[in-house]
């Protein structure tokens, strides 16, 4: 047998990867930033990719399984990630494939039945994260404990309303702010805005989501072909991770805001309402606060900022967010928004 060559794909070889993925029932993820393959002669017999701190779209030709090709490919991808400074890696896979990745040093974080398993390469990664959440929480949290997960891109009166309603309904409210830096407002700024906009609430504890909730690592759009199915699978896996966090902290209530203009949010809410109650977490959907112009949402604020409609933007955010938008940091983001083609992404 000729020696396999493991290397990055060259321009023009993506077609071979797509064909291999399709044969193995996977779909190429849209966000890949590096792809590699195992070549036997000129033939691609396995492929795998990176996106941010994740490994993705891993497939071995079904005729070439059992030769240890996957382990060599994964080793190559890990090396590439390390060179980029990404030491803590994530992947998700079908339930049946999880043991193979466990053999390669990945550890299960959570699973959604047999459909999808979410894994990381750090043995104590998730348990360390849970411990940090417990440390951030006061020693005797008041029951019932509730939670909101928000991106707050940027923090609006809608988020404030949701936080106030939720805080009034529970003893301790855990407010998780999405850490993934894929939104136009930087994660650190979003956290500051959330803290400033909820400073009047005395029973709120703040947490980062790191890579564990609503992150690039939990977006499984590749092994389910349909767009809605992919979003639903993501939400279910995200719900399974949240259920573990809720269990560790004693959270029994999850508050969700409606987003009338976002189909994905509707799917997300629907999935969580299915996944969480069996895990002992009640889901409460709170209707979005509305003004005469319509519901308040962060995407409307971003559009207003892009259009230079300060008057509208200011009506939709608390004074703390307005002050930030006028600051040097805020102005930098507004300039970026103006240069963007469209602002409707999360």
């Amino acid at each position: 047998m000729e020696e396999l060559e493991i290397r990055g794909l060259r321009p023009g070889e993506e077609g071979q990867m797509d064909a291999l993925l399709e044969r193995e029932g996977l779909q190429r993820d849209g966000w890949l930033d590096y792809s590699a393959g195992a070549f036997d002669g000129g033939e691609l017999v396995a492929a795998g990719s990176c996106a941010g701190n994740t490994l993705r779209c891993l497939a071995v030709d079904s005729r070439r399984r059992g030769e240890g090709i996957l382990s060599r490919l994964v080793r190559h991808l890990i090396e590439v990630q390390y060179q980029r400074g990404n030491y803590h890696l994530f992947l998700y896979t079908k339930g049946a494939a999880a043991p193979q990745f466990e053999d390669l040093g990945f550890h299960e974080i959570a699973r959604d039945g047999q459909r999808a398993v979410f894994l990381e390469n750090r043995k104590t990664g998730f348990s360390d994260y849970l411990q940090s959440l417990q440390k951030e929480t006061p020693a005797a949290p008041a029951a019932p404990q509730g939670a909101i997960v928000m991106n707050a891109n940027p923090f609006t009166l809608g988020h404030q309303y949701l936080a106030e309603k939720a805080a009034a309904a529970c003893g301790t409210l855990h407010l998780f702010v999405v850490s993934e830096d894929l939104s136009v407002f930087p994660a650190a700024d979003r956290m500051e805005l959330v803290k400033a906009g909820t400073a009047h609430l005395s029973n709120v504890v703040y947490h980062r989501t790191d890579s564990y909730l609503i992150s690039r690592a939990t977006f499984p759009s590749y092994f389910l072909k349909d767009g809605d199915q992919a979003a639903l699978a993501q939400a279910q896996l995200d719900g399974a991770v949240f259920a573990r966090i809720a269990g560790a902290l004693g959270i029994t209530l999850r508050f969700l805001g409606t987003e009338p203009t976002s189909h994905v949010t509707a799917l997300y809410n629907q999935a969580l309402a299915e996944v969480l109650p069996p895990a002992g977490v009640e889901c409460r959907v709170l209707p979005r606060r509305e003004l005469a112009e319509g519901p308040i949402s962060a995407s409307v604020v971003r559009q207003a900022l892009k259009d230079g409609d300060w008057a509208l933007a200011k009506r939709l955010v608390p004074p703390s967010t307005a002050a930030y938008l006028h600051s040097e940091k805020g102005q930098r983001v507004v300039t970026q928004l103006r240069e963007m083609e469209q602002v409707n992404h999360h």
Binding site: G68, S71, R72, V74, R75, I78, E79, Y82, G85, Y87, L104, G105
Partner: peptide, 13 residues
Amino acid sequence: GAMAGTLESSDIM
């Protein structure tokens, strides 16, 4: 961070 080794049989990464 740095690494050495492989994920193959009889080796350690």
